[in-house]
Amino acid sequence: MKRVAICLLLGGLIVWGGGIGAVGSTESMGSLKLGAQLYDNWLKMTGKTVEGNHPAYPAEAKKSGSSTWRCKECHGWDYIGKDGRYASGSHYTGIKGLYDVRTRSGQDLQQAIAATGTLHDFTEYLTLEEIVSLVRFINEGLIDISVALNADGTARGDAEAGKQLYAANCADCHGADGNAIDFKGDKDGVQGVGYLAVDNPQESLHKIRWGHPGSDMPSLIADVGLDDAAAINILSYSQTLP
């Protein structure tokens, strides 16, 4: 049985120790899903509002406002920040990702997220449960993007196996062709599953694995019980859709 982090709140400090329950337990998977969706868009998840740019967001970077407060905006959908998809372009910040720190202790990660008085202090915005869930996601929910994607962004899965999984888990909402939901309805043409899977496979894989904040989209890892190989297969098939 793999050990998972648990915590106690003592005098405002989170004390981490050995855990209870298997990683696949309902409680653990729910916490992982919450952490993954907070990483995606904690503002939507919590209903909190912010003003201006995040204080740690580089002045020379190109984004502004609430988007600069999202974890993914600096650390990337691929969890490797400046060394991945965000190595250049409008999302470039020069900030490192989180994949290389995933083995650090829960206490260390908690201090990085919620160190009072630092530029990265989120205690004003996130509850203890949310901070713990983010830490658990960093410790246990990240994926080595090089295992999932080739350098050109094509998924390294089995599209034929993914076709069956897509039909069983995705087609009811997204349609057989992936275009039942238009992600960019204000632009010409439909931008559905196939478009997003090719245009941003890193984001697509994160959402296949963990769902979309504030929606009914399930996490195929936490809610359905599929594994990462299945998620990559779904992404491979999704890239074949129009």
Rank of each mutant, 00 (worst) to 15 (best):
M1Q: 02
K2Y: 06
I6K: 11
L9E: 14
G11Q: 11
G17D: 12
V23N: 02
E27T: 13
G30V: 07
S31N: 03
K33E: 05
A36Q: 13
L38V: 05
L38H: 09
N41Q: 13
E51S: 10
N53L: 03
Y57M: 02
S64Y: 05
C71H: 05
E73L: 09
I80T: 02
K82N: 02
G84D: 08
R85V: 11
R85N: 09
Y86R: 08
A87T: 10
A87D: 06
G89H: 07
G89Y: 06
H91K: 05
G94M: 03
K96Y: 06
G97I: 03
Y99S: 00
Q110M: 10
A112Q: 09
G117F: 11
T118I: 02
L128T: 10
I131Q: 04
R136V: 01
R136K: 14
N139M: 05
L142A: 10
L142K: 08
V147Y: 15
A148Y: 05
G157R: 00
G157T: 15
Y166P: 08
N169L: 12
C170Y: 03
C170F: 04
H174A: 12
H174V: 13
H174N: 04
G175T: 06
D177N: 12
G178A: 12
A180Q: 12
D186H: 14
K187A: 11
G189Q: 01
G192M: 09
G194N: 10
L196F: 13
N200K: 13
N200L: 13
S204P: 06
R209Q: 14
H212K: 15
M217W: 04
M217H: 09
P218A: 11
L220A: 08
L220H: 08
D223E: 14
G225H: 11
D227A: 01
A231K: 00
Q239F: 05
Q239S: 08
Q239G: 03
L241A: 01
